Amino acid sequence: HNLTITQGKLFFHYNPKLCLSEIHKMEEVSGTKGRQERNDIALKTNGDQASCENELLKFSYIRTSFDKILLRWEPYWPPDFRDLLGFMLFYKEAPYQNVTEFDGQDACGSNSWTVVDIDPPLRSNDPKSQNHPGWLMRGLKPWTQYAIFVKTLVTFSDERRTYGAKSDIIYVQTDATNPSVPLDPISVSNSSSQIILKWKPPSDPNGNITHYLVFWERQAEDSELFELDYCLKGLKLPSRTWSPPFESEDSQKHNQSEYEDSAGECCSCPKTDSQILKELEESSFRKTFEDYLHNVVFVPRKTSSGTGAEDPRPSRKRRSLGDVGNVTVAVPTVAAFPNTSSTSVPTSPEEHRPFEKVVNKESLVISGLRHFTGYRIELQACNQDTPEERCSVAAYVSARTMPEAKADDIVGPVTHEIFENNVVHLMWQEPKEPNGLIVLYEVSYRRYGDEELHLCVSRKHFALERGCRLRGLSPGNYSVRIRATSLAGNGSWTEPTYFYVTDYLDVPSNIA
């Protein structure tokens, strides 16, 4: 807008934040220059609390790290170098490059900038070799853009010569660093050979998330399962459950009422301010606690030095998902009996873990797994792929695949051998790939016309006998059925096997 004052003059007093240069501009645009008398524009009460600059400061050096910015700028000295009290560095987070010096300023003089007072450097006698002032900004957020400017702080001049310097606002972004852990990993099994893994992005990506790394490792069953005799009275049979499938998407929606109208769909109840505040506090606490764990609990591995020492970490090797089922080394339970199943799973520490690289999504279907087997899954978020990966501390989750139908069934015939004193040795093959492992066998036998009897055969007993022995049988026709019990439950009964026990007292003698 054009402003013209045809008559009258300007009068400025007691404006401590208004620089004289701005008042002189007002004289020019209003056409009143030359009308004012000496005392109409006070030299001592206008701009006496402001830094009124008329020179431009330029930054000469900028260096960044993930949490620091090192700045240096060209030296500046007023005509009387004693008038320079120091520099004021202003900075704040700036997602967009549209910041002005006066953003967030209120009537009390406060604003949204963080201000650092910096002492002037030592003055050199040689004007050509003056030290460049600077400042190291610490405690910054990774991968965050900051708006920065600097200006001088000078003393009051009796001659009211307006001098000083100020830089333009520059924008500097800190470097990326390792992201925080992925949030809320959930693993479920939808079949006997697959596990579905879902997660949420890290709360602090500290860069642009480029991919996720998912490692999985087959877990050995508890050692007590191999040692305890679950045929003993009072000892509860062990059981394991597989990871249940995901709930429906509708039930997972946030901010939804727990109660549904019987007449149909209901609208979600909005969260109160107290609920939102509580969630923010919980989120802040979780982030602080995660940072504490990362800094205190997890110790970084030592990389190899120039002395030739090897990095103890196993090298990563990509495998196809079809090879995942046989990740671990199978060892027989008892070496003397080769027909026992290889369900003991000690994992070799030198073995390469299978892994998958996930790009542009937060889910993965891990296939080719062994049925009813526990897996430990390790999830890392990465925001750099080359020249070397920059990934987060791992988040861990466990899951067990679903049982395989008929995996616990005894394959092959049940054979028998009759000894003296009416002892019958029953023999059968253990299931080759049971659900988890076989903890015991149930032997059901009966003599024709009598009630059915049951015998429990422990895992250890089966390994020693290759089956079991029935003792003290009365003469007669017998039928026997056997079924295995694994961590997933009972298998199917075998087809009945028949044998006849004679009275050993009636056996004919070869003595003449």
Rank of each mutant, 00 (worst) to 15 (best):
V423T: 11
G491Q: 03
P238E: 03
V501H: 05
Q252F: 14
G264Q: 07
S284A: 15
R319H: 12
E389Q: 13
V365W: 11
S363N: 09
P300K: 04
V345A: 12
M427N: 14
E260M: 13
P312D: 14
I438F: 05
Q275F: 03
V393H: 14
E290N: 01
L232F: 10
L379Y: 06
L455F: 11
A463T: 12
R483H: 11
L369V: 09
F298N: 03
C266S: 11
P387L: 11
Y375S: 01
D222H: 15
A336W: 05
L321A: 14
F372K: 01
Q429K: 15
P332K: 05
D385C: 10
A399R: 02
V327K: 05
N422Y: 15
G306C: 05
E310D: 01
E378A: 09
E417M: 09
G449N: 09
S486I: 00
V439P: 05
Y259Q: 07
S304A: 15
S444Q: 07
L470G: 00
P354I: 14
W216A: 08
P475V: 09
H371Q: 12
D506Q: 09
R376H: 14
L505W: 10
G472I: 08
A330L: 15
P300T: 06
E495S: 14
F226A: 13
S392N: 00
P270F: 09
F289G: 02
R390A: 08
G476F: 00
E249C: 06
V423W: 11
L487T: 06
V297T: 02
E351S: 12
S239I: 07
E417Q: 11
H425R: 09
L437I: 03
S305R: 09
T343A: 14
N255F: 07
G325M: 10
Q256T: 12
Y445I: 02
N295F: 02
G264H: 13
T497K: 11
P314V: 13
V397W: 14
F285Y: 06
Y396P: 08
P238H: 03
F215A: 07
T373A: 14
Y500T: 09
N383M: 13
P205A: 08
N510A: 12
S367A: 12
P431Q: 03
P387M: 04
K361P: 11
S203E: 11
D408R: 00
I209V: 06
E217D: 05
E388T: 09
M427V: 11
R316G: 05
T415K: 11
I511F: 06
V324G: 11
D229M: 10
K302M: 12
D409V: 04
G489W: 13
D503A: 07
E362W: 10
F226Y: 12
V411I: 13
T241L: 11
L369W: 02
T288N: 04
